[in-house]
């Protein structure tokens, strides 16, 4: 079976899937979609794949899937033998899905601000920026108290989950939407940790972190 990702290189939502597939060491093909300026995701051919006209779309054999959070869950359930990325436990599943929803809120705010500034989208810049800051404040507080109690990741397990993958890209790209992360030190430290996950890959605007301090 072949996995095909309908992808736009500068899309954080597409990058979420490239990132998880890199971590899970999956092979896949890419079909580039000219999201900007071509608006190919609104073309007839693409709407047949996803009537909502949104990237990314992932095809696995006969299966056609859309929505980055849903696809993250699918890839983890289907291909992650360790079961760590989308855990089976009902409470943890709910927790992870809660963060997938936060990720969508980040897309609606931080990513929208980036589209307004960099891609000529007619969004209300001030409103989307304020919305992103509101969410980042809450995540920073969550992560800060997490650090104090020994939790490094968004969800409670002692390892990263798709919750982290889903929220990471548009946090890292926020400055392209004029949203500084200076006031969120715990959020910034968490981005270091995500960037140190084995198999991590970059995209334009997302830089690598150096290696962590080797254990003494």
């Amino acid at each position: 079976m072949t996995i095909t990702l309908h992808d736009f290189e500068l899309s954080g939502n597409c990058y979420k899937l490239r990132l998880l597939m890199s971590i899970l060491q999956l092979r896949y093909d890419i079909v580039p979609v000219d999201f900007f300026p071509g608006r190919e995701h609104k073309s007839d051919a693409f709407l047949r794949l996803n009537p909502f006209g949104q990237l990314p779309v992932l095809q696995d054999g006969d299966l056609t899937l859309s929505d980055s959070g849903a696809i993250l869950a699918y890839l983890a359930r289907r291909y992650d033998a360790s079961g760590q990325w989308f855990p089976d436990d009902p409470a943890v599943t709910a927790e992870v899905l809660r963060w997938h929803a936060v990720a969508d809120d980040i897309t609606a705010t931080a990513s929208a601000a980036r589209l307004a500034l960099g891609f000529d989208y007619p969004f209300d810049l001030e409103k989307t920026q304020a919305g992103a800051h509101r969410i980042f404040r809450i995540i920073d507080e969550h992560l800060w108290f997490g650090e104090k109690s020994g939790r490094d990741w968004l969800a409670s397990p002692a390892h990263p989950t798709t919750a982290d993958i889903a929220c990471f890209p548009y946090v890292m790209l926020s400055e392209e939407g004029g949203i500084s992360r200076q006031d969120y030190p715990a959020l910034r430290r968490w981005t270091d940790r995500v960037r140190r996950i084995p198999g991590f890959i970059v995209m334009s605007g997302i830089f690598p972190a150096g290696p962590a301090l080797p254990a003494a």
């Binding site: 650090e147 500084s180 992360r181 200076q182 030190p185 910034r188 430290r189 270091d192 972190a209 150096g210 290696p211 962590a212 301090l213």
Partner: peptide, 21 residues
């Protein structure tokens, strides 16, 4: 300008004082 805990090893903290980043 920061808490000591804000500066784990191998991290760069972004701060600002009196307009200077």
């Amino acid at each position: 300008i920061a808490s000591s805990d804000d500066l784990p090893f191998r991290h760069v903290y972004q701060g600002q004082l009196l307009g200077r980043e």
